[in-house]
Simulated assay, not measured.
Amino acid sequence: MTAPLATSTPPLTLHGRIREDLRERIVRGVLRPNDRVPSESELMLQYGVSRITVRQALGDLQHARMIFKVAGKGSFVAAPKPFQDLDRLQGFAEAMNASGHRTFNRLLQLRAEPASAAVARALALPRGTLVTALQRVRYLDDRPVSVDFSWLPLSLGSRLRREDLSNRDIFAMLETELATPLGHAELAIDAVPAPADIAARLDLATGMPVLHIERLTHDRDGRPVDHEHLYCRSDHFQYRLRLHRA
């Protein structure tokens, strides 16, 4: 009987070895956020390699957003991206403020309008029923990270006009001021090219990819209360989800 062939991991290239050595130092905390990474000349001397090899390694780390470059000063360790867990139903400000980040909402629109076919279907209302429509730009640590479109039944949304929408989540206001405990939400996530109006709000070039989230939130009794389309920059912020194998 022939023994199975042993498999082995191919050896790292020279630039791969430098990249992985630096990655390990960052992950272990030897190099901390905003620490300066050894210069190209220092890495050339340490590893006995050419400048192009060092630049390949640093380029890989920059592409992975583990480091960033400052012209004339060198490369520095990037801070971890802020993130929100999707395995909990919580508002953006609720999640970010709990981890020490500042949030702010710029309200672009708050009005009553007839429900489109898609909005009416989501909120289980007849087409053309008046609903409350909101549009906001959400900021994280003074940078725009998402443009949010929200539609709520008029009975709930009209009462939001009396609330401060600049620093609070709709979820929090639904549960406190509007006495509407939340139950669950359904999400669909994809990537889309940013339309011109959304790209301008997010300081992006038109057509750049953004993360698109469609979310329908239900109250504790299962009634749909908040239908949303969120367009998010993926370079300043990320969503995370823990999955369990049954």
Rank of each mutant, 00 (worst) to 15 (best):
T2I: 15
A3L: 15
P4W: 01
A6K: 13
S8A: 12
T9Y: 11
P11T: 07
L14M: 09
E20Y: 09
D21E: 07
E24Q: 14
R25M: 10
R25Q: 13
R25S: 13
R25V: 05
R25H: 10
V27T: 09
G29C: 02
V30A: 11
P33N: 12
P33F: 02
N34K: 05
D35Y: 09
D35M: 04
R36I: 08
V37S: 03
P38W: 00
S41I: 07
E42S: 04
L43P: 14
L43C: 12
L45W: 06
Q46S: 14
V49L: 04
S50Y: 01
S50Q: 02
I52L: 15
T53R: 03
A57V: 00
L61F: 06
Q62R: 15
H63S: 09
A64Q: 13
A64T: 04
R65M: 06
I67H: 03
K81M: 07
P82H: 11
F83K: 09
Q84Y: 01
L86G: 12
R88N: 14
L89Y: 05
G91N: 04
F92G: 07
E94H: 08
A95R: 12
A98S: 05
T103Q: 06
L107K: 09
L107N: 07
L107E: 06
L108E: 14
L108T: 05
P114M: 02
P114C: 06
P114L: 01
A115L: 01
R121M: 11
A124G: 09
A124Q: 15
P126S: 10
P126R: 13
G128A: 04
L130N: 10
V131L: 04
Q135K: 13
Q135Y: 04
Q135V: 15
R136K: 11
V137D: 05
V137A: 10
Y139M: 08
D142P: 01
P144S: 02
S150H: 05
S150N: 14
P153C: 05
L154N: 05
S155A: 15
L156W: 03
L156A: 08
S158F: 05
S158V: 14
R159D: 10
R159P: 12
R161G: 12
E163Q: 15
D164V: 10
N167A: 14
D169M: 02
F171D: 15
A172T: 12
L174D: 12
L174I: 07
T176N: 15
E177D: 14
E177S: 03
E177W: 01
L178I: 07
P181W: 02
P181L: 00
G183S: 10
A185V: 08
E186Y: 01
D190C: 06
P193M: 01
A194S: 09
A196H: 13
A196I: 07
D197N: 02
R201S: 09
A205W: 00
A205M: 04
V210Q: 03
L211H: 08
H212K: 01
H212P: 05
H218T: 00
D221T: 13
D226S: 10
E228D: 14
H229Q: 15
L230T: 10
S234E: 08
D235R: 00
D235G: 00
H236Y: 11
Y239Q: 04
Y239D: 08
L241D: 03
L241I: 11
